[in-house]
Design a binder for these strands. Structure first.
Lengths: 141, 141
DNA sequence: AGCATTACTTGCATTACGCAAGTAAAATAC
DNA sequence: GTATTTTACTTGCGTAATGCAAGTAATGCT
């Protein structure tokens, strides 16, 4: 997986990295669903295939968006953790959810409506900061 | 091109629509580069292939993100215009540029640094609103 | 010791993307 | 008014990304 940048446009270059069907979904699952192991991701609602997951985790590590480590008392389970670069994707994820709530519902009536959506709509910046803070407290011990 | 939604998560559903290599690039070109015809997009720096462009424009029309029309004095050139749903993608695009400026530069040293980036960093909300306003004034006559 | 779990890899089918060429209709040039 | 160019595509084909099912190796659990 060698990412080639199409040009020098910052927007296009970000899409070159995270512009696929799975990368942001994995980051979302880490930030908002507490997933951190291979198994966690495999068992998610979106049902990513294990080969795709494997290649994406590798790519995310290469770009320093996540780190991979083992806990001292378990030599089997890998723990994937978002770096600062990774949690900084939260504003993008928040905007995706806002756009969805406003414009996707029309085409997808079963879209989830929950408390988190109301919070992000009423206090976007606060929600982003709190999600990041909570993630760090829980995972950056 | 039939978009199937993977699940009821708002974030995942937005990625189901715009999560590919080209969709957001086309929207960016409309909002920030003034492109509006097939030719405009073909001639862009990113150099999209004409068959991909064609299929994306169709998809964007189906999702009501853009409209297609002809000017009264020209029966050949189609004008593509962002709808309200389309311009509402601007916050996502702004966040992509911010993340890029902060975290992509490390891997892509030729990344463009321009006035627009400074503006978006200093006054994100203002920049988003002004870009949308300017687009509407120019294209929604 | 034996079974289950975790984190993968491998093989193959399908869908997305990239490149080159071709086409039809309208606009422009002569 | 005929010829050339322009615009907006489509078609064909090769490569890359994704999806699905099965297999594997090492660790942890009983």
């Amino acid at each position: 997986m060698k990412t080639k940048f199409r040009c020098s446009c910052p927007i296009t270059s970000t899409v070159d990295i995270i512009g696929d069907k799975w990368t942001l979904i994995i980051v979302k699952q880490m930030l908002t669903e507490g997933r951190k192991t291979f198994k966690d991701f495999i068992e998610s609602e979106e049902a990513i295939a294990s080969n795709i997951l494997s290649s994406r985790l590798k790519m995310l590590e290469e770009f320093k968006i996540i780190t991979k480590e083992k806990l001292p008392d378990n030599k089997k389970t890998n723990i994937y953790t978002l770096t600062n670069k990774g949690v900084d994707l939260m504003p993008i994820i928040a905007e995706l959810s806002i756009w969805s709530d406003k414009h996707v519902r029309e085409f997808h009536s079963e879209l989830y409506s929950g408390e988190a959506l109301d919070i992000v709509k009423n206090n976007k910046e606060g929600f982003i900061q709190k999600t990041i803070e909570d993630y760090k407290l829980e995972n950056w011990k």
